[in-house]
Design a protein around this nucleic acid. Structure first.
Length: 449
RNA sequence: GCCCCCAUGGUGUAGCGGCCUAUCAUCCGGGCCUGUCGAGCCCGGGACACGGAUUCAAAUUCCGUUGGGGGCGCCA
């Protein structure tokens, strides 16, 4: 026992609400948590103690132990305590039982007033909440987002393991970017210029020549885009996938849709309680997802009065409109937008173009209710063609030789995609701001905490 | 980078140039109360982002600064 404590406990010694049932009634247990509220009625007081799995009630009676009563009722909200006491069945308690304390250890007293209310009736703005994120995350709903996120990642990993993918980790400090210099964060690297990786694109492709055949990575990606929207952050978590021996972009889409379906199914089965805090009906989408070509999208938008030419990329309004149209006409949330024109994907030098019509690529986006969730397609694996496409982009071939080496000595046809984890979560839980899905978000104006 | 909007106690808000030493709720402190569960009741505490300007008079109007929100562009 530590000399600073009088009540012995340990990380596995505490009982959680989810473990308490009729069989526990009458037994003495230890619980630990944060004091959410104290309802002091004078001779009796009810402490609402919030722990990992919810809020339980500790009831203290003055005439039974004035010392314990005073100790408990004088504490500030959000102070951390451990209580040893008997589980008492009581129909008047919300959970059907309450804890009658024998011993109380105050582990940490909370300062007052709180920078934002955890159990208050008034809300707080996102900015205030993010400034005080550790406290904000105590709120069951904010907390649940990250439990769901964890379950989502678990589901994703489960799918890839089942399909014999290898989980990889590529460098986040790089010498060159895959998507042009404007969105790279420059850093100093022992006296050389380096950048934070905006995508593992080049590396996952290189590994296709190494014989891994199927790889995936879940890792941060950095974009110095001067975007200030509810769906952009400077540091996000990217799921990247690359598959060798694909016959076309179709194979890549097959993988993406299976993954999305399985991941949603996994979340809906394994995060029921947490999902219940959000007003969402999580529907497991049916595969195959509908496919609509980019050209068809443009036509639909023209129908709707949006003036776009086939060379135009879909703008934000267009994306949202397509999402609405797919919902109205087909009742679906997920759909592939396929055959992106080469003109649009021009800077994506590694995209394979259609041999029968080089003005088109096999590249696709996966739309999720108007949000761009996935982007991918078959890559160009033929060395000469790839080099030509890089030349079109005025790229310095020498500085990309580390990449081209992989293509010179035996590279199978391959393709892959990238998926934004936060966007997936945001849309799934219908959250208005992507920052809600990141513990400590980084954006143009936020670097702390 | 562009366009629009906002800034009042710890938190969230009300506030017509003079009725404002500023509203309400929450919160914080004190008191009463043995079944609360949005606990209740009584008493008390705490704020006009900053710098200029207009005016007899500015929380309120104007300009700038800083901070924030929404949209666009770009994208995951």
């Amino acid at each position: 026992m530590g000399e600073w404590m009088s009540l012995e406990f340990g990380w596995r010694a505490l009982t959680h609400i989810s473990q308490i049932d009729e069989s526990t009634y009458g037994k003495t247990i230890k619980v630990g948590g944060w004091i959410e509220d104290i309802r002091n009625l004078g001779g009796i007081a009810f402490i609402q103690l919030r722990e990992r799995d919810g809020v339980l009630q500790v009831t203290t009676i003055k005439k039974e132990s004035e010392e314990l009563f005073k100790k408990l009722t004088s504490l500030s909200r959000e102070s951390v305590i451990v209580v040893e006491g008997k589980v008492q069945e009581n129909k008047e308690a919300k959970r059907g039982f309450e804890i009658l304390p024998d011993q109380v250890e105050v582990l940490s007293e909370a300062d007052t007033p709180l920078p934002l209310g955890v159990a208050d009736k008034v809300g707080a703005e996102l900015d205030t909440r993010l400034d005080n994120r550790p406290i904000d995350l105590r709120k069951p709903k904010e907390n649940a987002i990250f439990k769901i996120r964890s379950v989502l990642i678990e589901g994703i990993r489960e799918y890839f393991m089942k399909e014999k993918f290898v989980e990889i980790h590529t460098p986040k400090i790089v010498a060159a970017g895959a998507e042009g210099g404007a969105t790279l964060f420059p850093i100093q690297y022992f006296g050389s210029d380096a950048y934070l990786a905006q995508s593992p694109q080049l590396y996952k492709q290189m590994l296709m020549s190494s014989g891994f055949e199927r790889v995936f990575e879940i890792a941060p990606a950095y974009r110095a885009e001067k975007s200030d929207t509810t769906r952009h952050i400077a540091e996000f978590t990217s799921l990247d996938v690359e598959i060798a021996f694909v016959k076309s972009s179709e194979d890549v889409m097959d993988c993406a849709q299976e993954l999305v379906r399985d991941a949603i199914e996994h979340v809906s089965e394994n995060a029921k309680d947490e999902l219940g805090l959000f007003n969402v009906e999580l529907e497991i989408p049916e595969i195959p997802f509908k496919r609509i070509t980019h050209k068809e999208c443009v036509e639909v938008l023209k129908e709707k009065g949006e003036g776009l030419t086939p060379e135009d990329d879909l703008d934000t309004v267009g994306e949202k409109l397509i999402g609405e149209v797919m919902k109205e006409r087909h009742g679906i949330d997920f759909y592939f937008i396929t055959e992106f024109p080469t003109a649009i994907k021009g800077t994506t030098f590694y995209a394979m173009r259609k041999s029968e019509d080089p003005s088109l690529t096999g590249y696709f986006d996966l739309g999720y209710g108007g949000l761009e969730l996935v982007s991918g397609g078959q890559r160009e694996h033929r060395y000469d063609v790839l080099v030509n496409q890089m030349k079109e982009n005025n790229m310095d071939l020498e500085s990309f030789d580390f990449y081209l080496i992989a293509f010179r000595y035996g590279m199978p046809p391959h393709g892959g995609f990238g998926l934004g984890i936060e966007r997936f979560l945001q849309k799934m839980l219908n959250l208005s701001n992507i920052r809600e899905c990141v513990l400590f978000p980084r954006d143009r104006s936020r670097l702390v905490p």
